[in-house]
Write a protein that binds this DNA or RNA. Structure first.
Lengths: 291, 291
DNA sequence: GAGCGACTATACGAATCTGCTATAATGGAC
DNA sequence: GTCCATTATAGCAGATTCGTATAGTCGCTC
């Protein structure tokens, strides 16, 4: 049974005569005739009574029509879905990300990406960077974003490095400086990430190197929390200049010396081929992470 | 998009390699290869990654597979339904019939007919004969059974004539007779159909012809009601020998002179071609009505 | 690195299918 | 009878299908 036969059959049932069905399908009347003859032969059903050169659908044809139409629709649907997949209107994106990025930057980029993709299904899982790294190796995600360092290299990785900047509350005296060093922050109340974080360690080294006193008044898990504390005037702090940018509205930002490096990476699964969808989004994400 | 392509695609997705898919489908490996290449070209999707001479389904392939499998199943279902229709296992029968026949004989025959037809849908509508005759002309029924006379011949008709028989309650004195005439029933309590019925009129003529007194003690609408009254000893009566046979169990049946004729007919719609199913059942019904 | 095994891709040819034009056949309307 | 609308058949060109033969790729083993 061929789809073309079913198509001819449907057109014939809907329009009554072969001549009209042929017009509708853009083919010749004899073409329809042979198609129908073939279908009748293959199914073993007498679909039409030939009465005086005219066709009359038999009750069997009406019964069969229901199923034929259903099969045709399913096939047409498959074609449509193929087109949707091809054009990127259909698909799914499962993304694992660490909190700071999944609070603002990631959903913003995803919303933009999905705006012209009616059938796109999005799944975002937020975990700390270590867990995200484990998750991507389960091959259940299309993409992941985690902070470095990567303890074991399970997946393809694309690294983004940032030099952290110093953030000051509104109208802070240090705002007059072009650039800030540990010397400037000697004894100044400071908000930082937890001890385990690479940023913490780099800052500790920097202050000790400059011989300045690092006056930590708060340790937070996320950049966003730290930013909020700074905004409330609790102290100054350090953040990356891109991912955390949305949290530093209204704060004064100055370059920080020495360089405090913050590294994150886009991770992709290794065993699976990435979907076109994932590749497209990765492109957008890449642009977003370049700042 | 051809069904064969989807079939190859499904086999390939399910079995991983073209070689195995080809075995399963009973074709050659190059055959599968070209089929898949064609499907990829037509859908515009990269369904498989060629890595080192092996195939790896892409995420797009997995998305498309869902719809492809659905379409294939629908097509296979259509084929199966065609086979069911052809072999008479699927179809529907809409039958209109008058009460006496639809109480017992018709459902008995239908049950027998349907016993090996799992997908047969049956619809029985019971109306008086005049209404049945109107219904058949609406072309909504495959078959109808009504009593004659047919007032206007709207449909194809197959007539069955019966000579009515006399029924006597159990152990009735007249049971000793081989045959019963109006003379024998002179003044005997009699149960009959209503005045409008042809049977009533024929009986009236018969009794008056024989100069016997027709002692009607009850008029009923249906044969079955009349039979029950006779069984209760309320009187004697007359019924047709075939349709009403199931109601006369335990009663004594004797031929009746003169002939009281009872005619019914199988009616078929004129405009519609009868379904094979209807024709098959008509054959069984015909045998049943011949007694 | 050569050989082997498992796999896929391409080339080519035969058979089949598709769908066209031309034409025959049928039946209804006038 | 003639015209008109319809379906069916024949014959042909082109496309599709699917086989065989063959080449290419990769991983494994020795």
């Amino acid at each position: 049974m061929r789809l073309r036969q079913l198509e001819c059959f449907r057109a014939l049932m809907l329009h009554g005569t072969m001549t009209r069905a042929a017009e509708l399908l853009g083919m010749s009347q004899p073409g329809i005739s042979t198609m129908i003859a073939g279908l009748e032969h293959e199914t073993g059903l007498n679909l039409f009574l030939r009465r005086g050169g005219r066709l009359q659908p038999t009750p069997e044809a009406k019964l069969f029509y229901v199923e034929a139409a259903r099969a045709l629709e399913a096939a047409e649907n498959a074609s449509r879905v193929a087109a949707e997949i091809r054009s990127g209107r259909r698909g799914h994106l499962a993304i694992a990300a660490y909190p700071s990025i999944s609070i603002n930057l990631l959903p913003r980029l995803l919303a933009q990406f999905a705006s012209n993709k009616p059938e796109l299904q999005i799944k975002i899982i937020t975990r700390n960077s270590a867990t995200v790294r484990e998750l991507i190796s389960t091959q259940q995600f299309d993409l992941a974003v985690a902070e470095l360092p990567q303890d074991y290299p399970t997946s393809h990785m694309e690294v983004f490095s940032y030099e952290c900047v110093c953030m000051l509350p509104h109208a802070h005296p240090l705002a007059k400086l072009k650039q800030i060093t540990p010397d400037d922050l000697d004894g100044v109340p400071f908000v930082t990430l937890f001890r385990g974080d690479p940023i913490y360690q780099q800052l500790a080294s920097a202050f000790s190197e400059y011989g300045a006193r690092w006056n930590v008044v708060a340790e937070t898990e996320f950049f966003s929390t730290a930013c909020q504390l700074v905004a409330e005037g609790r102290g100054v702090g350090i953040v990356d200049p891109v991912v955390s940018k949305p949290f530093t509205e209204g704060l004064t930002i100055r370059p920080f010396k020495p360089k405090i490096q913050y590294q994150i990476a886009i991770l992709s699964p290794t065993h699976e081929a990435p979907s076109q969808m994932a590749q497209d989004f990765a492109k957008l994400l890449r642009r977003g992470l370049r700042g």
